[in-house]
Amino acid sequence: MHETNQKLKMSLYAALMAGITAILAQLTIPLPLVPITGQTLAIGLCATILGRRYGTLAVMIYVAMGAIGLPVFSEAKGGFMVLIGPTGGYIVGFIIAAYVTGLILEKTSFTLLPAVVANIAGMVITLVFGAVQLKFIASLSWEQAMSGGVIPFLLVGVIKAILAAILGVTIRRRLMSAKLLPKEETRAA
């Protein structure tokens, strides 16, 4: 019974983090090809706070909400067409980024330096997925896809990765000390 309650609690945390991701996605700085948003910060928070399994679940819930048409993506967009459009690769990349970020933290530790490294790895994954889809959907050269879909986001991405690491580790520690976040559930294989 205890294990079932813990899984339910963690699933609810994942749903809550999906909602937080939807809110942070609305913080947008428009750029010509792809806007800078709070989504990537939220993805890092999901993985850093909840770990690989439930952090990825949170992101999958978020992507599913957007795919069915809820206006949760940046600029209150939603629908399957966003996922197959020029910026859809970034959104799909969020799922892999959350998984890898959480995995790195589970294999090392949920402390600041590994969290920064893990979140930067997640940022790189997101940018790679985004650039690849941007290149093909927008019929761009690799140089254009990199200059419009990766390079403008590197500095901001590193800043958001560091912020996600600091906030995520702090929130995770506080949730664990309050016995609201079970250590064994987020570190399970």
Rank of each mutant, 00 (worst) to 15 (best):
Tyr62Leu: 02
Glu106His: 12
Leu163Met: 12
Arg172Tyr: 01
Gly149Glu: 10
Gly51Leu: 09
Gly130Pro: 00
Ala67Leu: 15
Glu143Gln: 11
Ile171Gly: 01
Thr108Ser: 08
Val169Tyr: 03
Ser177Pro: 03
Lys179Pro: 08
Glu185Lys: 12
Pro71Asp: 10
Gly89Asn: 05
Leu113Arg: 09
Gly55Thr: 05
Ala138Asn: 04
Val63Gly: 08
Ala121Glu: 04
Ile151Pro: 01
Leu50Trp: 00
Val72Leu: 06
Ala145Thr: 01
Gln133Arg: 02
Gly102Ala: 07
Thr111Arg: 11
Ala131Arg: 00
Pro152Cys: 03
Tyr90His: 09
Gln144Phe: 13
Gly102Lys: 03
Tyr62Glu: 08
Leu154Arg: 00
Ile68Pro: 07
Tyr99Asp: 04
Ile91Asp: 00
Gly102Thr: 09
Lys160Arg: 03
Thr101Gly: 03
Thr186Ile: 15
Arg174Cys: 08
Ala165Thr: 07
Glu184Ile: 12
Glu185Val: 15
Gly85Pro: 06
Thr101Ile: 13
Leu83Glu: 07
Val59Lys: 00
Pro152Gly: 01
Cys46Asn: 15
Ala131Ile: 06
Val117Ala: 11
Ile49Tyr: 00
Gly55Val: 11
Tyr54Lys: 04
Tyr99Gln: 06
Ile171Trp: 02
Leu113Trp: 14
Val156Lys: 13
Gly69Phe: 14
Val128Leu: 08
Ser141Glu: 00
Ile84Ala: 10
Gly157Ala: 05
Val124Tyr: 01
Lys179Ser: 14
Thr56Leu: 11
Val82Ile: 13
Ser147Lys: 14
Ile91Lys: 00
Ala67Lys: 05
Gly69Pro: 14
Ala178Glu: 13
Thr87Tyr: 03
Gln144Tyr: 11
Val150Ser: 03
Lys179Gly: 08
Ala97Ile: 08
Val169Met: 06
Met146Gly: 03
Pro182Tyr: 10
Ile91Phe: 03
Ser109Tyr: 09
Val169Glu: 03
Val124Gly: 01
Val82Tyr: 03
Ile91Arg: 00
Gly148Asp: 08
Ala47Glu: 04
Ala178His: 09
Ala98Ser: 12
Gln133Val: 07
Gly85Ala: 13
Val156Leu: 10
Val128Pro: 02
Phe80Ile: 15
Ile104Glu: 05
Leu167Ala: 15
Ser109Pro: 08
Val150Gly: 07
Leu103Gln: 11
Gly149Leu: 10
Ser139Phe: 07
Arg174Pro: 02
Leu83Thr: 07
Lys77His: 11
Val132Pro: 07
Met81Gly: 14
Ile96Gln: 02
Val63Phe: 09
Leu180Ile: 05
Gly69His: 14
Leu140Thr: 07
Phe73Leu: 12
Tyr90Arg: 08
Ser141Lys: 01
Gly88Thr: 11
Phe136Trp: 13
Ile68Thr: 07
Gly89His: 05
Phe129Tyr: 13
Leu134Gly: 06
Ala161Asn: 12
